[in-house]
Amino acid sequence: MTIRSVVSDEHLIQRYKQGDLEAFEALYQKYLPVVYKRVRFVVPERDIEDVTQEVFIGVLKSLQSFRGDSQFSTWLRTLTNYKVAEFYRKRTRKQDPREAPLVEAELLPAEDGLHVEDRVALNKALAELTDKYREVIVLRFADGMSFEEMAQTLGSNLEATKSLFRRALAALRKNLEPNL
């Protein structure tokens, strides 16, 4: 049995705070797929690894001050969203974001075909959503949460969460319209 399946996040964080880098590595292996999936939804293909690394560098820097007021997974989700927002802030300063999808489409491997083009369009449309709308879509499609789990995460009830989900999809559809 591996270290990550038997040891709780709290215990690993405690060990990391005492200088055990192996504890961080266990956290990394447990949460990399989670962070990667989330980042993949909202960041262009070529930047996924870079932003994912930024998230874990943020973990290394901030974990010492993590007090455990919330679950580590919740804290990590907030940090991921922050790093994605930071990525878009830096990117907006560097280039015209309207030109980006074309550049990305050229860099992507051709075998993925239509899905790649659609992913670029969806990435862009998701990035243009409000935080609330983007979050509810990412929770369902990237994090794979059920609507009950989403309601709990968002601190809302089931009906309100489903309603938010429908409005978020409507907004996403509107953003996608020029690409339809």
């Binding site: 939804f41 659609d118 999809l169 559809r173």
Partner: peptide, 10 residues
């Protein structure tokens, strides 16, 4: 849109 999201991010 749901189908597009599912298919674009397998």
């Amino acid at each position: 849109v749901v189908l597009r999201l599912k298919n674009a991010f397998p």
